[in-house]
């Protein structure tokens, strides 16, 4: 379990992390989401005891990581995939890391096979692709068979097959009762992986929400209705709270009424519907809407470019 309480990190006047509190529970994968520069990596470095918080605490299993006798068994982590000396082999890199916590070389071989690097383990890691570097970083995170796994942007640079692999790996780790905390700036990467989301922007907590609740936030905004008697139906649906728009003949998009209400209204008035489709926003759209105000650098639109 990771507990972050009133965590704050100031660099001069700037608050990189601003009074952040959340708990990462065991048994599920928790996604740590936010735009670039939201303070995800800074938070993770404070959880690791690398950066000192300006105020607040970040603990792993109730204690600071540095107070754990075997840090790698308490918290396996991936910070930067490239954090390996390029002329050292993956095997030697992991061997040197393992021995700091009294971990055997047999375990090194095991995690190398686990991430699929067994055959290239003796080669210099400088020749590794980005995806292989990520796999090596994940191998390092798993060395201590840790109760908590924390990965900063592990999906970066992985091909689709690699993304699928890491999703299953992390979900398996969570099923074994471990705490799994994974950061990303892309909801599309996380939505199939995580059961819970901690969403931050400009160092502040925006949402600490289960995947189901987030999907509920995404659902039921509008309904698309298609009917040969659409004009009759529109006349019946009109109301103060209802907004009806039309893009093509015979089809309207309705906000302010649920699809059930529209269906009942049509039935009661003998109007035949060709289709009645509740439209959901994607989680990506919800995430974008939640974090929109906290994005540091917005791209210009085409019109601005042309002006």
């Amino acid at each position: 379990m990771i507990e972050v309480t009133n965590l704050t990190k100031a660099y001069g006047e700037t608050l990189a992390v601003d009074n952040l509190s959340f708990t990462v529970q065991p048994g599920i994968v928790t996604g740590f989401l936010g735009p670039n520069g939201a303070g995800k990596s800074t938070s993770m470095r404070m959880i690791l005891g690398l950066d000192a918080p300006t105020s607040g605490t970040a603990t792993v299993g109730g204690r600071n990581l540095a107070d754990h006798a075997l840090p790698l068994s308490s918290l396996g982590f991936l910070l930067e995939a490239g954090a390996v000396h390029p002329s050292r082999s993956a095997y030697d890199h992991l061997r040197a890391l393992a021995v700091t916590n009294g971990i055997s070389t047999a375990r090194v071989d095991h995690v190398l096979d686990l991430v699929g690097l067994g055959d290239v383990a003796k080669r210099r890691s400088g020749g590794f692709s980005l995806g292989m570097g990520q796999r090596l970083g994940i191998a390092a995170a798993l060395l201590g068979d840790p109760e908590v796994v924390m990965l900063d942007e592990p999906v970066n640079g992985l091909d689709p097959e690699g993304i699928l692999w890491i999703r299953h790996l992390l979900q398996d780790l969570a099923k074994e009762g471990r705490t799994v905390f994974v950061s990303s700036h892309l909801m599309s990467e996380m939505e199939l992986m995580a059961e819970h989301f901690v969403i931050i922007g400009q160092g502040r907590l925006i949402e600490d929400v289960s995947a189901d609740d987030l999907r509920a936030m995404a659902a039921g905004e509008t309904t698309q209705v298609r009917s040969d008697q659409i004009d009759d139906l529109v006349a019946l649906m009109r109301g103060d709270e209802v907004e009806i728009t039309s893009q093509e003949r015979g089809v309207v998009r309705v906000a302010g009424l649920t699809s059930t209400e529209i269906g009942v209204l049509a039935r009661d008035n003998d109007i035949a519907l060709a289709s009645l489709v509740p439209e959901r926003r994607s989680l990506e759209e919800v995430f974008m809407a939640l974090t929109h105000d906290s994005v540091q650098y917005h791209g210009g639109t085409h019109t601005e470019l042309a002006a």
Binding site: L70, G102, R135, L142, L169
Partner: peptide, 30 residues
């Protein structure tokens, strides 16, 4: 380096709860 063997699906060897049973290493040992 482009082709990698398919990684093993199963993650680990033992449940998380059993990993902390060993004696606490001393500062000298560490």
């Amino acid at each position: 380096t482009a082709t990698l063997p398919a990684p093993t699906a199963s993650a680990t060897t033992r449940p998380a709860t059993s990993s902390q049973t060993t004696a606490k290493p001393t500062a000298l040992r560490r």
